[in-house]
């Protein structure tokens, strides 16, 4: 079916209402950078589409030293904010200027691998996601949001309305490795956050993109780091663990074999970056 109806709600409530009324066959589009190509090529042939660009979900606020990011805040705005450096880095590494003017933070949670570079950063930052449906809103940690390839805990009648990023604790590094320097899908993306107390690592998040069915946390790498002094041995052990527990895939960008090696290399580099930055709190 060629598109028969395109809805452009003007408020979150209206968006939730339209979704409830039209049901799960309604294609929900945020920035359109993933959905529009599918429609243009005839790969998706939706009858009804809802665009969220004017749905009033685009507030970007500093809250308690962290960020409250409306689902349709564009990557251009995320790039330009100064509160969380890693999110600016992640936005800059994603797509191009023109596409970032359309692409949204909420939409990036649904970008299939090897995309989802911002989502990978959000995972390292312990972000949580607010989901809103007819019965109200609920908040889930981003780590629990993804359930599989292109599947999430989002219910059919819910929308992602905002993303909360707590004040950044610890030192961070974000490295995206692609086959070109810009506007390129990820071979691997690594976002790390390491919390130290007097040199000893007390907590860590090692998030991997393009290394599984969705952005994943490498818990084995975290275990290898906690209690260490972030020395070469600990970094090496964490990189090995991340490579082991990653679940990379082969596609036109890179093979599983290569991606797994790049996970090891870029986890190492990211951790070395944190180590050499010193305590580097709250970059």
């Amino acid at each position: 079916m060629t598109v028969a109806s395109y809805f452009l709600p003007r408020s979150p409530a209206e968006a939730v209402e339209i979704l409830a009324a039209r049901g799960p066959s309604l294609m929900v589009m945020s920035g359109g950078t993933v959905a529009m190509p599918l429609v243009n090529e005839g790969i998706s042939l939706p009858e009804e589409v809802m665009g969220l660009r004017f749905a009033g979900l685009d507030r970007l606020e500093v809250v308690d030293g962290g960020l409250e990011i409306g689902a349709t805040v564009t990557l251009t705005r995320l790039l330009r904010q100064r509160t969380v450096r890693m999110l600016s880095d992640a936005a800059r590494s994603t797509a191009s200027w023109t596409v970032r003017n359309l692409a949204t933070v909420g939409g990036n949670l649904f970008t299939p691998p090897p995309g989802g570079d911002v989502a990978t950063a959000l995972l390292a930052l312990d972000a949580s996601v607010t989901l809103t449906g007819p019965a109200g809103s609920r908040t889930v940690p981003l780590a629990d949001f993804f359930t599989g390839f292109m599947t999430t805990v989002l219910r059919d009648d819910e929308l992602v309305t905002s993303i909360r990023v707590p004040a950044v604790e610890g030192g961070t590094a974000y490295l995206k490795f692609g086959r070109k320097q810009a506007n390129t899908p990820s071979v691997v993306t690594v976002a790390v956050r390491v919390v130290r107390d007097g040199g000893a690592v007390t907590d860590a998040r090692i998030a991997l993109g393009a290394a599984g069915p969705h952005p994943i946390l490498a818990d084995g790498a975290r275990t290898a780091l906690v209690g260490s002094r972030l020395d070469d041995d600990a970094i090496g052990a964490a990189a090995d663990a991340a490579a082991r527990e990653s679940e990379p895939f082969s596609d036109g960008i890179a093979s599983e074999w290569y991606r797994r090696r790049m996970v090891r290399l870029f986890v190492r580099r990211a951790l070395e970056q944190v180590a050499s930055a010193g305590a580097g709190e709250g970059r």
């Binding site: 079916m1 060629t2 598109v3 090529e41 005839g42 042939l45």
Partner: peptide
């Protein structure tokens, strides 16, 4: 008549 119709018919 339209590109969209052609794509749909192809499918």
């Amino acid at each position: 008549e339209t590109e969209a119709a052609a794509l749909e018919a192809v499918s």
